[in-house]
Design a protein around this nucleic acid. Structure first.
Length: 662
DNA sequence: ATTCTGGTCCTTTTT
DNA sequence: GGACCAGAAT
């Protein structure tokens, strides 16, 4: 380990391993390096892996850290816990599942699964829900579970629905995302002996991205750290961008109160961005109130550096500009594709850009948004696996019982539901029970379809319990269910699409296989893989290290950096998002932080693009530049074709007029 | 009667 | 491009 490379503040942060520690780490201040060095130092001091817990927000960050520490120490890290809060929650829940009446191999429900369960619960109570109600309730239940609001304050109808929802989850042997934090916390609060057990085990705790912890997550780790009080939190209040998910940057203040003996270290030297970019970012964030004063500084002065704003006519031209610039810079400055990052406030903006990348043959990697794992064929495959693993997973059952089509429709499902509700039995078990009747209460095709389905699935369930060649088994299962035939029927005159989709499935299975066969993987079980992908969700396993341009939301870009960064759609209503401001005007500060995060991703060159008009949901919308642009010192910004000179504003006015004429 | 097929609305950010 | 509801095909 080379501690010499650290600056004095970083050095102090690494060496302070006993007691509580608050590290305020500005953007690009080498935070990850400090955390990994600190863990490596602990190991060097003879602290066993067992006693160390490091919590992060994304799997990517956790993997990156593990990788770096492994490289630094050259040790096998099988007992070191570096995980996301949610993954750590799963670990605790697996260890304590019995206590909660759950069986091993429970399912984890994401928000669309959650919505289905709410629907089921409502149906059970005879409630009819509009789509909007559903979204609201989903949100409400999340808030109840994360402790933002209390169940007792809700109407009796809502309380009943919530109870029913919980009951349904339990019957399906499933947890939703919020449970992964809420249940372990509740367990620690109600069972002192369990808490004591985990306190003994995890004596050194570290939390990354502390500004993004929810109140509940903070309570959880504060409880865990209460015995040994070796808690180190690392955060930057200026990069708090998850308040909509319950993140509460006042946790920093709570920490200061709860751990008065803490040591506080500020990392203010930035190693990432050039002076121009940093100065602009500092000027922007200074507009926020109620923040910890920071002065980021850098010694980097680079002649190549630049900060540009480009005004384009529409989103097509914006995409063209981005493509052109990437292609030009790649050649003229011999940069590799993966040194480029293209960021946007929301997913939908990326569609046009993505199309342009395809048109121009620019290899790209799109993360966040509708990812690989959200493709229908992949979700179907996962549902097959989920049901094979957890027979009570009704949501998976409903998804695939008629995929490919096998004559099991609405009516059959209704009958099935009716019979399962009476007995509190899962749909799959109900189906099997009813099929054994002399005269099953289904139509003839449905009987045949269900029979086929259950027989095949049972056969593969058997094979999965061997925990051997699971990816292979999964492939055989897809084949046995004739997914290929289903695809051909679905795309009768487009077998290219069918082929592509089928290939996706096997690409997915090859990742599964790689995970399964990895020698570092101590417990290759189907349920563990399913949990892993449920938690990794949108993050695609970065298996291919081919150079690709990175296309992502600003949220997804946090913690990353790019030599050349584009921020697309720097327009009023996009960033700051009108939706967000509608919700609450004070959200402007969070939107500003979001923009701050975007700016500070750039190392050398930063391009911001603004369109005059943009196609959104079949309609052409006129756009104004983002008010945040005025908060950047104008002397730093280059606008190559000075389009905002008075005569051009007039021209813009003209085009607005022409628009309305149509 | 039941499954299937073809038209509508809507998209902030994610573990 | 998907979830939803209304008619067509079996």
């Amino acid at each position: 380990m080379n501690l010499g490379a650290l600056n004095p503040e970083q050095h102090q942060a690494v060496m302070t391993i006993e007691g509580s520690l608050l590290i305020i780490a500005g953007a690009g201040s080498g935070k990850t390096g400090v955390i990994t060095h600190r863990i490596a130092y602990m190991l060097e001091q003879g602290i066993t892996q067992n006693h160390i817990l490091a919590l992060t927000f994304t799997n990517k960050a956790a993997d990156e850290m593990t990788h770096r520490i492994k490289k630094m120490t050259g040790k096998k890290l099988s007992n070191l816990t570096i995980a996301t809060f949610h993954a750590f929650g799963v670990k605790v829940l697996r260890e304590q599942a019995k206590l909660l009446g759950y069986r091993d191999g429970f399912s984890i429900y994401d928000s669309s699964d959650k919505r289905e369960v709410i629907k089921d619960s409502a149906r059970e109570l005879g409630m009819v829900l509009e789509h909007e109600d559903l979204v609201d309730i989903e949100h409400l239940f999340g808030q109840i579970k994360t402790g933002i609001i209390t169940l007792a304050d809700q109407t009796t109808g809502m309380q009943n629905l919530f109870q029913e929802y919980q009951e349904f989850l339990y019957l399906k042997n499933a947890f939703d995302f919020d449970d992964l934090v809420a249940r372990p916390l509740a367990l620690f609060q109600s069972h002192p002996e369990i808490l004591a057990h985990y306190q003994q085990r995890y004596r050194y705790i570290m939390v990354d991205e502390f500004q993004d912890t929810s109140l509940q997550q903070y309570q959880w780790i504060a409880l865990l750290a209460n015995q040994y009080r070796n808690l180190c939190v690392v955060g930057d209040d200026d990069q708090s961008i998850y308040s909509w998910r319950g993140a509460n940057y006042t946790n920093i203040q709570a920490f200061e109160q709860d751990f008065p003996e803490r040591v506080e270290i500020k990392l203010e030297r930035n190693y990432r961005s050039t002076g121009i970019i940093l100065e602009a970012a500092n000027a922007l964030i200074a507009h926020n109130t109620n923040r910890k004063e920071k002065a980021l500084w850098t010694e980097s002065t680079d002649a190549e550096a630049s900060l540009q704003v480009r005004y384009l006519e529409n989103d097509q031209q914006e995409s063209e500009f981005i493509c052109d610039t990437i292609r030009t810079l790649r050649v003229s400055e011999s940069r590799s594709y993966n040194n480029f990052g293209v960021l946007s406030r929301n997913n939908s903006l990326m569609d046009t850009i993505e199309e342009a990348f395809i048109r121009h043959d620019i290899p790209y990697r799109r993360s966040g948004g509708r990812s690989f794992f959200e493709r229908k064929e992949i979700r179907d495959t996962i549902a097959y696996l989920r049901l094979a693993d957890n027979i009570d997973d009704d949501i998976a059952f409903v998804r695939i019982v008629n995929t490919p089509r096998r004559g099991v429709g609405k009516q059959t499902l209704a009958t099935l539901r009716e019979h399962s509700d009476n007995r509190k039995e899962s749909l799959y078990c109900t189906a099997k029970r009813l099929l054994d009747w002399e005269k099953p209460p289904f139509s003839a095709p449905a009987v045949a379809g269900l029979r086929d389905f259950t027989v095949t699935l049972d056969q593969f369930r058997e094979r999965f319990t061997l925990h051997k060649d699971m990816a292979r088994t999964a492939g055989d299962m897809i084949e046995a269910f004739d997914y290929w035939g289903g695809l051909l029927r679905e795309y009768p005159n487009n077998d290219k699409v069918a082929k592509w989709k089928y290939d996706n499935i096997f690409k997915f299975l090859s990742w599964f296989e790689r995970w399964e066969k990895n020698p570092d993987n101590l417990e290759p079980k189907l349920s563990l893989y399913l949990m892993r992908i449920a938690l990794a969700g949108r993050e695609r396993a970065d298996l291919d290290d081919t150079a690709m341009v990175n296309l992502m939301t600003i949220h997804a870009a946090k913690g990353l950096e790019f030599d050349v960064t584009f921020i697309a759609g720097v327009e009023d209503g996009v960033i700051p998002s009108s939706k967000s401001l509608q919700e609450n005007e004070t959200n402007i500060e969070e939107e500003r932080r979001l923009f701050y995060v975007a700016l500070t991703r750039a190392k050398e060159k930063l391009f911001m693009t603004v369109c005059h008009q943009r196609r959104q949901m079949r309609e052409i919308q006129l756009c104004q530049p983002s008010p945040f642009l005025h908060e950047l010192p104008s002397n730093l910004i280059e606008t190559e074709d000075k389009e905002l000179e008075p005569e051009d504003i007039e021209r813009l006015g003209m085009s607005v007029f022409t628009m309305f004429k149509d």
